[in-house]
């Protein structure tokens, strides 16, 4: 298990095109609504999900998003989203996180932007093997 504090069923969504990004966004929004996140938190996280899902589609062609609830310290609950792909991976993570960095002719706000929008952000990448990014938003 990727996270021992997982406390409910998880959802998996395969993402391989732009329509899937919308589906992923809707699923995250629905879950956050059920968990009673504020509208602002929902908007922030769904935006981050949109950035990360698009990142997967443009750089790796496809990937998988996994969603589940997690328990934190002091009775807090959170939503964790993991994005995994088997794409080319990222050579230099620090560089990729910087604002304005882009290899795909976008604004380059994708990774760094997503990080700014959520409570926790973790990225692991092996060049040639793939990338895994997980974000958590606490209630």
């Amino acid at each position: 298990m990727p996270n021992s504090r997982q406390n409910s069923e998880s959802f998996e969504i395969m993402i391989s095109n732009f329509e899937d990004i919308i589906l992923a966004r809707q699923k995250v929004k629905f879950l956050m609504g059920e968990m009673c996140f504020s509208l602002l938190a929902q908007t922030r996280i769904v935006t981050a999900v949109s950035e990360l899902a698009r990142n997967m589609v443009t750089h790796a062609g496809q990937g998988k998003m996994t969603l589940f609830q997690v328990d934190g310290k002091r009775k807090t609950r959170g939503l964790k989203c993991i994005f995994e792909d088997k794409g080319p991976g990222i050579q230099n993570i620090d560089e990729a996180m910087q604002e304005g960095f882009s290899t795909a002719n976008s604004l380059g706000l994708g990774l760094g932007g997503a990080k700014k929008l959520c409570n926790e952000f973790k990225i692991e990448s092996v060049p040639g093997k793939g990338t895994s990014i997980s974000i958590i938003e606490w209630l």
Binding site: L39, L40, Q42, T43, T47, L109, G112, G113, K116, L117
Partner: peptide, 14 residues
């Protein structure tokens, strides 16, 4: 533009 969207865009740095 919705206020939540505005705040998100600002935080995103767009």
């Amino acid at each position: 533009m919705k206020k939540e969207v505005v705040l998100t865009l600002i935080q995103l740095g767009l």
